[in-house]
Amino acid sequence: MSRQLLQEPVQDLLDALTKSEGPDILSTFTTSPKPLAHEHGLPQLAPFLGRSFHGQEGISAYFDLLSTYLQIENMKFEPEETWVIDESCMAIALRGTATFTWKETQHSWEETFAYRIKVAEDVSDDSEKNGSLKVCEYQIWADTGAAYLASLGNLDDMPE
């Protein structure tokens, strides 16, 4: 599998995350195999952390939880030439930055986060999707401590 072919579905996902005119986020994920979203961290810190979200319904639930609790602005990603691409397992690792605001407390923080995104051929019954490369695994590592402190309204109390 070529680097270019692997990058295209990942770029579609990033466009859906960052551009108002981007594709619908669910359309960037496979239907079969069932996709997975997992944001690493303790589940006690936030309802979207430390849980695996499976299938289109799970992906939708994950992004619904994110939008319920967080406002995300100025999301940017490193250029494609810096992505780590493993062609043998069809996965890409990359970093991004954004400003996050916990909606209930209005506490904000800027952070760098890491993604590992795996792609697969969608083998669904839908002939339009069948055979196209899509995201099948979306893993995130982020600053769970900042999210937790922001949820409590204590983020501003931390020394710099």
Rank of each mutant, 00 (worst) to 15 (best):
M1H: 10
S151V: 02
P23V: 07
A37K: 00
H107D: 13
A16N: 06
R3D: 10
L155E: 07
E73H: 11
G55D: 04
E81I: 07
K118V: 07
P35C: 03
E81C: 09
L6P: 08
L6F: 07
T99L: 11
S27Q: 14
G145A: 13
V119G: 01
A98C: 11
V84G: 08
L70E: 00
E111I: 01
E21G: 07
P33H: 01
T105M: 05
E128G: 10
L94P: 00
D24A: 13
I140Q: 03
E73I: 02
F53S: 01
K34G: 10
N130W: 07
C136P: 03
L17Q: 10
W109Q: 06
S2L: 09
K19D: 15
L6H: 06
E111Q: 12
E57L: 08
A142L: 12
E78K: 12
D143T: 00
A37V: 09
D24K: 11
L42S: 08
E39Q: 15
I140E: 04
Q71A: 14
L14G: 02
Q139N: 12
S52I: 11
E78I: 13
W109M: 03
V10K: 01
L94G: 03
K34F: 09
Y115N: 11
S124W: 04
Q71T: 14
A150L: 07
H40Q: 07
G131Q: 05
L14H: 03
D126W: 05
S2R: 11
A150Y: 08
D24T: 12
E110N: 12
A46F: 00
E128K: 13
W102G: 02
S32D: 15
R116W: 13
K103G: 02
H54D: 10
L49T: 03
G153R: 14
T30L: 00
P23S: 11
S108M: 00
G50Y: 01
T31V: 13
D122H: 00
H40R: 08
W102I: 08
A91Y: 12
W102D: 04
L133N: 01
E39P: 10
C136I: 07
W109K: 05
T97V: 12
G96Q: 05
F63Q: 02
C89P: 03
F48W: 08
N74Y: 11
L42H: 05
P47C: 06
T97H: 11
L5E: 15
A93T: 10
S67I: 00
G41Q: 00
E80N: 10
A142K: 02
H107C: 09
S132V: 09
S67W: 06
R95M: 14
R116F: 11
L36N: 03
A46L: 00
E39F: 08
A91F: 14
A142W: 01
F29Y: 05
P23N: 12
A147H: 04
Y138N: 06
T82A: 15
E137Y: 05
K103M: 01
L66M: 12
S2T: 12
S67L: 10
P9H: 05
L5N: 15
I59A: 01
N130Y: 09
